[in-house]
């Protein structure tokens, strides 16, 4: 099952719409509520990141019986130092982002905590691609 969403940079009133839609689908599919929460918290943090930092972006979601795969591809400033960006507390967010309750440098570490696989590829001045996977079935099942 595939879904795509487009995100506009700076559009905070719609940040979370994609995550909300994905949550509804996962609930309809009777996915375990802990897995749903891990997936939508990861996606929501990532969605807010695109709204906060990029000009625009696209989300590609694939749900199989094995896992939830999420790719967020944005056009934006990119990330200069990915390992620094992964440090809890490091942030380049604007005051506007902080007013919305984000920008404390917790988003990427929180995505890592909630996902089974996470990869960031970024080109400064071009954009960032974030890949996240959440397993629906554990390897033992």
């Amino acid at each position: 099952m595939n879904f795509n969403f487009h995100i506009i940079g700076g559009d905070f009133s719609n940040a979370g719409v994609a995550s909300s839609e994905v949550k509804k689908v996962l609930k309809r599919l009777n996915v375990d509520c802990i897995i749903i929460k891990r997936a939508v918290v990861s996606l929501y943090e990532a969605e807010v990141n695109v709204v906060a930092h990029a000009f625009e972006g696209d989300i590609f979601i694939d749900i199989s019986s094995e896992k939830i795969s999420i790719i967020l591809k944005d056009k934006g400033p990119g990330i200069e130092d990915i390992s620094k960006a992964m440090e809890e507390g490091f942030s380049t967010a604007s005051p506007k982002v902080r007013e919305m309750g984000f920008g404390a440098g917790m988003g990427l570490p929180n995505i890592k905590r909630n996902s089974d696989f996470m990869e960031i590829e970024s080109v400064v001045g071009v954009g960032t691609t974030l890949t996240i996977e959440i397993n629906i079935k554990s390897s033992g099942e």
Binding site: S20, K23, C33, K37, Y44, V48, M100, G101
Partner: peptide, 15 residues
Amino acid sequence: GLANIQTIRTSEMSD
């Protein structure tokens, strides 16, 4: 004390 749409979205995602 944060009264904006993301307060509700965050709660939605966190159940």
